[in-house]
Write a protein that binds this DNA or RNA. Structure first.
Length: 551
RNA sequence: GGCCCCUUGGUCAAGUGGUUAAGACAUCGCCCUUUCACGGCGGAGACAUGGGUUCGAGUCCCGUAGGGGUCACCA
């Protein structure tokens, strides 16, 4: 009896690997095209860090006319979540990062290198495991969980390196006959790699981001096929990325320390190893220290947070590119209106250590992004968001013609307003432009500098009775407020007042603030002339009367 | 604990042995402005630490401290 017989006993039905090697055609891509992947577990949850990876992967694939595919790593059936795949695909779509091939919903996929769901590739992994068994590069291990635990305790007590290696690899040197005997007796087993590594020797690795690193060789006999017949991550990674012809593995740097295992696996399978880029995680400040953004503790770790808040996807991606390549910033400055697709990402410029997540910065980017939108775009996006998250806002926006006027205030000019950083800001920003909402809210009027009722009353009354004319153009309107200021003994010009402030009780700015507050109950609004144009005569009069009554 | 990686203003960061150590966000001040926002100008603010190497160190080497990652039949 030899290795071949043992392999046949373990995986009697597995096909020879030549079947798979021939089944998948070589990808027809131009020189230098990057084939990469996003390979999540189907938990439905997409972490900001994952989005970061995908954004980078997608960009690199696109830049090189390569391919990004989505592979679902569902080899841990305990972690299975219902509709997890859909959740991931939906999130990617929300951010404009739909992969070129791979799963497209829970069961369907596109692309010629599938299945793209690992649980459906069981026979493939077993074929390659069999191939290793045939060569004596892998072996069945009969150690029970208890046995392994006991071993670990012993190792820890003796302060030696824990694990299944060297003399501790109890079943490594079992004869083929002994192993076959146990299998025939129905003993449970898993398949381990017979590691040729030596802890004393070093293995060199050049990482696209981390640079040159070296590690001790792997000498652990890692599990490649689990008791349920499915592969471990390591084994699946080697087999899949070989067959799917991945050229670049872009993943979180928590994987960096698995490099010795992965390189060894590729070598033993006689596969060409892909290039690796290990991305530093996005961190969060915590008690003065840093830690990874946490799914449990930080709402902003979930990409759904950004859709919920109404932060536009371009803003999120732009922020991530900002972290990824520091030259992005100067590129953006030079090309303020260019599409993100035009930015060339350089993986070698990525930071080696993790950046602290900065919500203030992302909102700043978002503000700028939104400021470039047209009123129509703002309307569409705000409406889309409102339909899901804010019924009241949706109802406010139903009158599209009016809403467009409101969003059009001070928009489209050279220095657009930057007052909306997310769709969830919209309501608070425009609510005073809606008469029914304005009447419904029982807030106080705060007239800022002018506080005595008589003056306020005088300003408002004079304005409605004498100065206001809905047909005035902006200059006339403006001059009339100056006239009003003069009439009540205030300075016409702020500059003059500043020169001799003791000469007047206040200036035209104070007067218009009174009007502004009477009109909107706010001291900070966009251009008052435009607001008045949108509100219209009736509303303006009603508002001034209401303000007078409230005095 | 072993192994691996990292450390420049509050934050993101440029930096490849000689720089007045960029820039952005945040912050403060001034200007513009009838408010706010925008914009413009300016201020404050950093090479973790101790040794080396060198004419010269943020940059190279060693140590220390701090931070992060990883050590599963999870990915």
């Amino acid at each position: 009896m030899d290795y071949k017989d043992l392999a046949n006993l373990i995986f009697p039905d597995a096909k020879p690997i030549s079947y798979y090697e021939e089944k998948y055609a070589k990808r027809n891509l131009k020189e230098g095209a990057i084939v990469t992947r996003f390979a999540p577990s189907p938990t439905g949850f997409v972490h900001l860090g994952s989005l970061y990876q995908v954004a980078i992967a997608k960009k690199l694939a696109k830049q090189t006319d390569g391919v990004l595919f989505l592979r679902i790593e569902d080899t841990d059936q305990k972690r299975e979540v219902e509709n997890g795949v859909i959740g991931i695909i939906k999130s990617l779509e929300d951010f404009g990062l739909t992969p070129d091939e791979g799963m497209i919903d829970e069961v369907n996929e596109k692309g010629d290198y599938g299945p793209y769901k690992q649980s459906l590739r069981k026979d493939i992994y077993q074929a390659y495991a069999k191939h290793l068994l045939e060569q004596g590069k892998a072996y069945p291990c009969f150690a029970t969980t208890e046995e392994l635990e006991e071993m670990r305790e012993k190792q820890e007590k003796a302060k030696i390196r824990p694990g299944y290696y060297g003399v501790w690899a109890k079943y490594r040197n079992l004869s083929v006959e002994e192993a076959a005997e146990k299998i025939k007796n129905g003993e449970e087993y898993i398949v381990r790699l017979k590691s040729p590594g030596n802890e004393e020797k070093r293995i060199k690795h050049h990482d696209l981001i981390k640079g040159n690193v070296d590690f001790p060789e792997n000498d652990q006999d890692i599990v490649i096929i689990k008791a349920d017949g499915l592969p471990t991550y390591h084994f699946a990674h080697a087999v899949d990325d070989h067959l799917m012809q991945t050229t670049h593995v872009i993943r979180g740097d928590e994987w960096l320390s698995s490099i010795p295992i992965h390189l060894q696996l590729f070598q033993m399978l006689e596969f060409k190893a892909p290039k690796y880029a290990h991305i530093a995680p996005i961190m969060k400040e915590d008690d003065g220290g840093k830690r990874k953004l946490s799914k449990r503790k930080d709402p902003e770790a979930a990409v759904s947070y950004y859709t919920d808040e109404g932060i536009p996807k371009e803003a999120v991606i732009e922020y991530l590119l900002n972290i990824a390549n520091s030259n992005f910033e100067s590129w953006r400055k030079a090309n303020p209106n260019a599409s993100l697709d035009d930015f060339e990402l350089q993986i070698s410029k990525m930071s080696v250590s993790g950046a602290l997540f900065d919500i203030v910065k992302i909102l700043d980017i978002s503000k700028t992004v939104i400021s470039k939108y047209t009123a129509e775009q703002i309307y569409d996006e705000a409406m889309k968001w409102a339909k899901v998250y804010d019924k009241e806002l949706e109802q406010m926006l139903e009158n599209k013609e009016y809403a467009l006027k409101v969003f059009g205030i001070e928009r489209g000019n050279a220095k657009p307003r930057k007052d909306i950083s997310k769709w969830s800001d919209v309501k608070a920003n425009i609510i005073y432009m809606y008469d029914d909402k304005f009447d419904g809210i029982d807030e106080k009027y705060d007239y800022q500098k002018v506080q005595d009722k008589e003056t306020i009353e005088k300003i408002v009354k004079l304005y409605i009775e004498k100065y206001y004319n809905e047909n005035d153009d902006k200059q006339t309107w403006f001059d009339k407020i100056k006239d009003l200021a003069e009439e009540i003994g205030y300075a016409r010009e702020v500059k003059e007042w500043k020169k001799e402030p003791e000469k007047w009780p206040g200036h035209v700015g104070d007067v218009s603030t009174v009007l502004r507050v009477a009109l909107t109950r706010r001291s900070n609004t966009p251009d008052m002339y435009e607001i008045m144009q949108v509100l219209g005569k009736d509303s303006i009069k009603a508002r001034f009367e209401k303000a007078l009554k409230a005095l």
